[in-house]
Design a protein around this nucleic acid. Structure first.
Lengths: 350, 350
DNA sequence: ATTAGCACTCACGGCGTTTGAGTGCTAAAT
DNA sequence: ATTTAGCACTCAAACGCCGTGAGTGCTAAT
C-alpha cells in the first residue's frame, strides 16, 4: 500500500487540488473551477487531460458523464500518504485538550469517556475511545463483598484505577468469619496478576498450600471460577449525531444504517479490533472506507491512534466519519490527543 | 383535562375513525374514504360537515385546504381519554415479556436495561426505563476499599442489588489496620439508611460515641462527606434508531434534533422527571406532544407507567415516539411490563 | 336534518425546455 | 511533442405547464 509516488509532479498537484477542493466543498470538481480556484498556470483543457489520466489510473471517479470528479478510495489514500501536509493544532485546541484531560479524573474509563467527547467536540466528527482490555488489566486490590446469602460481589481495582464489580451466585454461602482472612489472602497472593488469569493462578498456587491456607484458596477458587473470561472491550462513542450535518448522510438509507449500528456497541468494538490490526500491520493511522466494514458503512473513514501505558499499546482512540474529511487537520488532533491520553494514563496507573 | 365528553355520538364516532385511520396509515383522511373504509351509514357530505365542526372545535386540522384532516393534540387526547378501547396483549407478547424478565438478572439496573430493550423490540418505538433514584436507595452493605495512598473506593450495595462505586480523594490516608473495624462499624450502624443521608446519620450518631467508636465515626465521616449528594438518575434508552422508520421523521431537521437530544441523557432524564410529575398529577400514563418539551420535539408522545417496589413508586418505564402511535396497543404493553418489573424488583430487593 | 350536486383547491406526477457546469476530441499554436 | 483554443456533446437540476384525483365548502333539493 505504501508504494512510491507513481504520479508526475503535475498529476500530483492536480490530485491534491481535487481532493482538497472536494474535502472542503463536498461538490464534484471540474477542470475550469479548479484552475480558477487554485490559480493554476495550466489551461482547463490541460487539467482536463490530466484528470482523465488520473481517472484511468483509478484515483478519481465521476458520478455521471459530464459532472465533475471526486476522489476514489485510492485517491484519498494517495493524498494521505504522499500529498497532504499535516496542519498543526491551534493554541486554543491544544489548550482545550490539555485542560480537559489534566483535570482530576477518577480512573481510566473517566479519562477515555472525556477523550471521546473531546474529540467529537473539536473535530465535529464522531469521537471514540476504546477502554483498556478488561481481562488483561492487572489486579491492584481484590475483595469480596456479600450481598445476600447466595450472592457475592467481586470487587477488583485494576492498575488503571478502575473498580470492576461482578456479581456471582454462590453454590454454598461463605461465612462472615471467613471474609476477613479471605480478603487478606487474596490481596497477598494476587496483586499484579491479570484479571483473566486469577483463577488459574489460585489453582496453581494451591498445590503448595496446606490446611487453612488451602481451605481459603478453595473458597476463593469457587468464586473466581465464576468470573467470566472474555468480556468485550468497552467503547466510548460520542458526537454521533453530528454526522447528520455532513451532506453525505442526506441519503436516508445510509443514515439509518449508521445509527442502527451505533446502537449495537459490540459490533463496533469488533470492527475496531479488526481495524486496529489493519492499521498496525500497515503502520498507519488512517483507514479509508473499506469493503470489510459492515454493509451501509462502505464509505466510513477512521482516523485513529493508539495510546500507550508504560510504553505498551493498550487501546485506540480516534474519530469516525464520512470518507470525505479533513485528514490533514484530524491526524494532528488525534495524534496529539492520544499522546496526552498516554501521559495521563501512565501517571494514573503508577 | 379529564372533562366529560362534549361530543355527540356521531361526532365521537367520526373522530374515532379519523384517529384510527390516521394512526394506521399516516395519511391525512378525507370524508369519502372514511365512509368507505368504515362502512358508515352517513353520506360523505354529512361526514364532511361533522369534520368541519370537529375542526372548528380544535380536534382536527388540515395541512392545507383541500387535503384530508389529521388529529390535533386535543384530538388525540380525546381519543385516548374517551374513545379508544385498549387492545390486550397477545399470548406471544405476554410470554416474551415474562421470559425476558424472569431470567436470572443481577440487579435492578440489569432488569431495567432489559426492560428498555424489550419495550423497544415489541413496540417498535424507543423504549426507556428510569433506574431507581440512586440517592434514595438504601444501604444494604457498605465498604471502603483502598486504591492508593490518597484514593479510596466507597462501595455501596443497595436494596436493589446494585453495587455503586465512588472514588474519593482523601486528605489524609486511612491506615490498613483501621479498615477492618471501620467496615464493621459502618455495616453495623448504617444498614437501611438512604444513601443521601449517610453522612448526616453518622454525624448525628457521633454525639453519643466516645473513644474508639468516635474515632471510627470521624474517619467514616471524612470519607462520606465526599459522596456527592445529587447524582442524576440513570436512564436506559433503547431502539431509538427505529424511530427512523416512522414517516414523520423523514423531515431531516426533526430527526437531527431528536438524535442530538438522545446523546444528552441528562436532558432526557430531566424531561422525564417533569413528565412524571405531569402524569401523576393528571392520573394518566400518556403524554402527547407538548410545548414544554425541548425544541424540535413538540410532536413526541410518551406512553409511560410507573413501577413500584414494595408499593412505593420508584421510577417510570415506557416508550417514546411520534405523536401518531397506536396508543390502544401500547398502553397495554407498557402497563403489563411495568407490572412485571414491579414484581421482579420487589422480589429482588427483599 | 340530510344529502346530492357542483364549482373550486391544491399537492403530486409526468413531460418538455432551458440552463450551466462539465466533458472529450480535434486542430492549431507553441 | 506539448499545450491550448474551440466546439460539439452530455446530463442533472431547475422550471413551468399541464392533467389528475382526492379533497373541500356551499347551495338547493329531499
Amino acid at each position: 500500500m505504501n508504494q512510491p509516488p507513481d504520479l508526475n509532479d503535475r498529476e500530483a498537484q492536480v490530485l491534491h487540488a481535487v481532493v482538497h477542493s472536494y474535502i472542503t466543498t463536498a461538490e464534484p470538481v471540474g477542470s475550469r473551477s479548479l484552475v480558477k480556484r487554485f490559480g493554476m498556470t495550466w489551461s482547463p483543457a490541460t487539467v482536463r487531460n490530466v484528470m482523465a489520466d488520473l481517472e484511468e489510473m483509478g484515483y478519481l471517479e465521476q458520478l455521471h458523464t459530464s459532472s465533475g470528479r471526486i476522489p476514489t478510495t485510492k485517491g484519498y489514500r494517495y493524498y494521505v500518504d504522499h500529498l497532504m501536509h499535516v496542519q498543526e493544532l491551534t493554541l486554543r485546541e491544544r489548550e482545550m485538550i490539555e485542560h480537559d484531560l489534566t483535570q482530576r479524573l477518577n480512573d481510566a474509563d473517566d479519562v477515555l469517556r472525556h477523550t471521546s467527547h473531546l474529540l467529537a467536540l473539536i473535530t465535529h466528527q464522531a469521537g471514540f475511545a476504546e477502554a483498556p482490555n478488561g481481562g488483561r488489566a492487572t489486579v491492584k486490590r481484590l475483595d469480596f463483598l456479600p450481598i445476600s446469602a447466595e450472592r457475592l460481589a467481586v470487587l477488583i481495582v485494576d492498575n488503571y484505577g478502575r473498580v470492576h464489580t461482578l456479581t456471582v451466585y454462590l453454590d454454598q454461602p461463605i461465612s462472615a468469619a471467613d471474609l476477613g482472612p479471605l480478603s487478606q489472602f487474596l490481596n497477598e497472593h494476587l496483586e499484579g496478576i491479570s484479571i483473566d488469569q486469577l483463577a488459574a493462578r489460585v489453582e496453581q498456587k494451591m498445590r503448595s498450600f496446606w490446611d487453612e491456607q488451602r481451605r481459603l484458596a478453595e473458597l476463593a477458587l469457587a468464586v473466581l471460577n465464576h468470573v467470566p473470561k472474555q468480556r468485550p472491550n468497552q467503547l466510548f462513542l460520542d458526537g454521533t449525531s453530528q454526522l447528520f450535518q455532513q451532506p453525505e448522510f442526506k441519503d436516508f438509507e445510509k443514515a439509518r444504517d449508521m445509527f442502527g449500528l451505533f446502537e449495537e456497541q459490540d459490533r463496533i468494538v469488533d470492527m475496531m479490533r479488526r481495524a486496529a490490526l489493519d492499521l498496525e500491520a500497515e503502520k498507519q493511522n488512517i483507514l479509508i472506507g473499506r469493503e470489510q466494514l459492515p454493509r451501509g458503512l462502505e464509505d466510513i473513514s477512521l482516523v485513529a491512534s493508539p495510546y500507550k501505558v508504560d510504553g505498551q499499546t493498550v487501546g485506540l482512540i480516534g474519530i469516525l466519519g464520512p470518507r470525505r474529511m479533513p485528514y490533514n487537520k484530524l491526524t494532528a488532533i488525534v495524534d496529539y490527543t492520544a499522546h496526552m491520553v498516554s501521559r495521563v494514563l501512565t501517571r494514573l496507573s503508577s
